[in-house]
């Protein structure tokens, strides 16, 4: 009950065989094509905030609407960036689910 072993119901699975399937390789490639660029994008977009705020405070203090400045707008935009990113990810990942289900279809 302690080590994460497959339960008794699961038949012995040839993991290497599934891993070598072209459909599975394609799934991994598709995931990497989305996740890697998305991760690089959000990290750069996010880290730009402390870098700009820390090192270019005069630029960030520019007012855009009343007393609301670039710094506040950029910080607020991070929330929308995160929500949009999550929305896109869920859409894309739903397609991966279908491929993953096909890959393991014969092994249930």
């Amino acid at each position: 009950m302690s080590a994460p072993n497959p339960s008794e119901k699961t038949p012995v699975v040839n993991w290497a065989e599934i891993e070598a399937k072209p459909a599975f390789r394609q799934l991994l490639a598709r995931k990497a094509r989305f996740i890697i660029p998305a991760t690089i994008f959000f990290l750069i977009y996010y880290l730009a905030l402390p870098v700009l705020v820390g090192y270019y405070p005069e630029l960030m203090k520019k007012k855009v609407w009343g007393e609301v400045n670039v710094a506040y707008v950029f910080a607020l935009s991070q929330f929308f960036m995160a929500w949009i990113m999550a929305f896109i990810y869920v859409r894309v990942a739903a397609q991966w689910d279908k491929v993953a289900a096909e890959v393991i279809h014969d092994h249930h």
Partner: peptide
Amino acid sequence: YDGFMYSVGFLVAYITVLLIVAEPLRNAGK
């Protein structure tokens, strides 16, 4: 404003969880 930086970081951190960690962890752990 500098205090608000905590709020922003706390939320954006969830993209790391969503994209990289949550699903493999659920699938492979106990």
